[in-house]
Design a protein around this nucleic acid. Structure first.
Lengths: 188, 188
DNA sequence: CACGGATGTTAGCGATCGCTAACCGAAGCC
DNA sequence: GGCTTCGGTTAGCGATCGCTAACATCCGTG
C-alpha cells in the first residue's frame, strides 16, 4: 500500500509546515492542498496537534532506530561515525521538509508528544556523542554533545541549500561533516 | 542611550519568537513580557509585522556589513575566511534568539522586508562563497554556496547547544568550521 | 500654568482559527 | 436490497487574533 490517504496528508502537511510554520498553516489551507477541504482532515486525525505529533514522533523514531542499527553494524568508532553521517545525509535529503519542521515546530507539540520526541532526540545525540568519545577518549562528554549538534546543524542545512544534484550534495556534506568531526586529516 | 524602550521590545520579541514562533506569539503575550499590555506596543511599532521586519532587517544588515569589513581587512582568503568564521560565531553567541528567528520566521515578513532580507542574506552567502573560491579556485560556484550554507548551519547550531562556557563554545565551533571548510589539515 | 506630545490603559470590532454537527453518496456485506 | 461504514461536504460555534478608538497620565516647555 504505497501512500495511504493518511500518508499523503502527512507529507503534504510537512511541506506546508516547513514553508509557513505550524501556526502559520490553517487546517483549511492544509485540506485544500490535499484536494479536500478543511474539516475532512478530522476523519483521519483527531486534531491538528495530533497530526504534527504523528509526523514528528515517527521521524524521531526512525532516525534513532536506523542510526543505532548502522552504528552497531560498524567495526570501529570511525566507521560508525561515517555510517551515522551517511545515514543522516540520506534521511535529510529524502525528508527535507520534515527536517525543517522538526527543529522549528517541536515546541507546538502537546506535552506528551513533545517529551517523547525530546527523549528520542536526546538518545540520538547521545548515540553520536558516544561514538565521538570512543574515537577520542579524552573528549569531554558535554563537548561531544556540542560537536554532535554542530554536525546536525551542518547536515540539516541541506533543505535550505540543495542546489546541487543529490549525489554531489551527498559528497559535499559527507566531506564537510567528516572533516568537522575530525574523521580525516588529509585533503581530497 | 543603552536600551531604549524600542530596543527592549525588540529583544524581548526575539526571545519569544524564538521560543514559540512569530505566529505562536500574540501581541498580548509580547506586551506582557515587556511589562505592558497588548496594544501599548502600537505606540512603538505600526504593526506586529513591522516589528519582525525591524528585527530581521537590522540583523541581516549587521551580519553583512561587519562581515564585509572583516573580510576586506584580511591579508589572504584563508585569513578572510577565518575572520568570517570568527565574526559569525561572535554574532551567533551574542544573538542566539535572533539567529533562530531569522531562519525560522523570515517567511512571515511582509513582501518588501522579505525581499530586502533575502537580498542581504544572498550577499552574505556570496561573500563567503567568493572567499572559498579564491582559496580553492577550482571550486564550482554553486558548490561554494552550498559549503557556505553548511558552515552557517554548523555555526548556527549554537542556540540549540550552548552547553559550554562561551570561550569553549567559540573554540569548538571555530575548530569544526575551519576543518569543515578545509582551512586546516592537521589535528590539534 | 496651560498645553501638547509621548506613552500607557481598557473596550471592543471584524476576521480568522480549530473544531463539531448534521448531512450525504458510494462501497462492501449479509 | 437494505444497512453499515467510510470519507467527504457545508454551516456554524466559541475562542482568539491583530488592531483601533477613546480616554488617562505624565512631563517638558513657552
Amino acid at each position: 500500500m504505497p501512500a495511504s490517504r493518511r500518508d499523503q496528508i502527512l507529507s503534504t502537511a510537512a511541506v506546508l509546515f516547513a514553508e509557513r510554520g505550524f501556526h502559520g498553516t490553517s487546517v483549511a489551507d492544509l485540506g485544500a492542498a490535499c484536494g479536500m477541504s478543511g474539516p475532512a482532515l478530522y476523519k483521519h486525525f483527531p486534531s491538528k496537534d495530533a497530526l504534527l505529533a504523528a509526523m514528528l514522533v515517527s521521524i524521531s523514531e526512525e532516525l534513532l532506530a536506523v542510526g543505532t542499527e548502522r552504528a552497531e553494524a560498524a567495526d570501529d568508532p570511525a566507521a560508525a561515525l561515517d555510517a551515522l553521517v551517511d545515514w543522516h545525509i540520506t534521511f535529510a535529503l529524502a525528508n527535507k521538509s520534515l527536517i525543517v519542521v522538526q527543529d522549528r515546530d517541536w515546541a507546538a507539540l502537546p506535552v506528551e508528544a513533545r517529551e517523547k520526541v525530546r527523549t528520542l532526540q536526546r538518545k540520538y545525540v547521545a548515540l553520536w556523542a558516544a561514538q565521538l568519545r570512543s574515537l577520542s577518549p579524552e573528549l569531554d562528554d558535554t563537548e561531544a554533545h556540542v560537536r554532535a549538534h554542530a554536525a546536525f546543524g551542518l547536515l540539516n542545512s541541506t533543505p535550505h541549500s540543495a542546489f546541487l544534484p543529490e549525489d554531489a550534495m551527498r559528497a559535499v556534506l559527507h566531506d564537510m561533516a567528516t572533516r568537522a568531526l575530525g574523521l580525516r586529516e588529509e585533503s581530497a
